[in-house]
Design a protein around this nucleic acid. Structure first.
Lengths: 138, 138
DNA sequence: TTACAAGTCGGAATGATTACGATATACTTG
DNA sequence: CAAGTATATCGTAATCATTCCGACTTGTAA
C-alpha cells in the first residue's frame, strides 16, 4: 500500500491527504506486523508533538473502513496492520514483536457443508508464538 | 463441567466454593456459548444484589486460569464460555447470541513445516455469522 | 486567494477492567 | 459446634483503551 495509492483512495471518497495521514501510512509501511493505537500514538508524538488520540483513532478507523488497514483483537486490545489483500491468506503473529508471516492455507476450504444452515460472515485463523528473531533475543 | 467437578478443582488448589462461584458455573452451564463479563454481572445482580464487578472479574480469571473457562476477544471485549476440552476443536460463533457450534477440523493439521523456525504457542480458528435461530429472528 | 468542507486539538466522557482497604464467609481444627 | 484464619466479597476509586465534542486549523477546488 503506497502513499500515492492511499492518496487516490482517499480522494475518491472526498477525504484529504494530510501530513498526519501520510506519516501513519509510512509507519505501517515500515512495520510489517500488527501495531496498537498506542504504538502509533507514541510514534506520532515524536513527529507531531501534541497530536491527539482522537486523530490516531479517527484515522485508524477511517483506514480500516477503506480497507487500507486490517485489524485483530489480541488480549482485548485492537491491533492494526496494512491490509495485504492481494490474495486471501492468514497470519502467524509473533507475541513479542507483532511481526507476521503469511500462512497460505485457509481452513474454510475444508469446511464443506459442516455449517449447513448457518450464515457465514467472517472467519479468523491466526497462529501465535515467537518468530526466529525473538527466539534468539530471549 | 459439573459443579461437583469444579468443587474438586478449586479445593485441590486451596480455593473455596462459594455461593457466587456456584452460580457462575450454573450460568455458564446453561449458556452453551460465549458471554461477556457484563452478561454475567447482570445475571448475578438478580441473584446477589450488590455484587461487585471485582467478584465477577476475579472469578472469571480464576476459572480461566484453572481451565474451567476458555476465552476469546471479540471487538476488543473478552468473552467466556465453559472449556469443552474433551478433545481439540474450534467453534462457529453466532454474532448475535454468542452461541457456538463445534467445528471438527483444525488447520494446524495441515500446517506441515510451513512455520519452520517459528515457535508455536497457540492458535485460533473461529467462524462468525448467524446461527439458524438468529437468522429466523432477523 | 478565498471559501468551506474536512481535519485536528484539547480535554472531557464512556466502557471495560483492575486495584485495594475494610468487612464477611468458608473451611479446618480443637 | 465454636473459634481462628485464610480466602472471598464489597464498595469504591483508579486505570486503560476508546469515543465524543466544540473550537480552531488546514487542504483543496474554483
Amino acid at each position: 500500500m503506497s502513499i500515492d495509492n492511499t492518496v487516490k483512495i482517499l480522494q475518491n471518497k472526498g477525504y484529504k491527504m494530510t501530513h498526519r495521514r501520510n506519516e501513519i501510512i509510512s509507519y505501517f509501511s515500515e512495520s510489517d506486523g500488527y501495531r496498537t493505537a498506542k504504538n502509533l500514538y507514541e510514534h506520532m508524538e515524536d513527529k507531531f508533538p501534541g497530536i491527539s488520540y482522537d486523530t490516531v483513532y479517527r484515522n485508524l478507523h477511517l483506514f480500516h473502513d477503506l480497507n487500507i488497514l486490517e485489524s485483530t483483537s489480541l488480549n482485548a486490545e485492537k491491533h492494526f496492520r496494512l491490509n495485504c489483500s492481494d490474495h486471501h491468506h492468514h497470519h502467524f503473529i509473533c507475541s513479542t514483536c507483532g511481526k507476521t508471516k503469511k500462512i497460505n492455507i485457509c481452513p474454510m476450504d475444508d469446511i464443506g457443508n459442516m455449517l449447513k444452515g448457518y450464515t457465514i460472515d467472517d472467519h479468523k485463523f491466526e497462529v501465535y508464538g515467537l518468530c526466529p528473531d525473538c527466539q534468539k533475543a530471549s
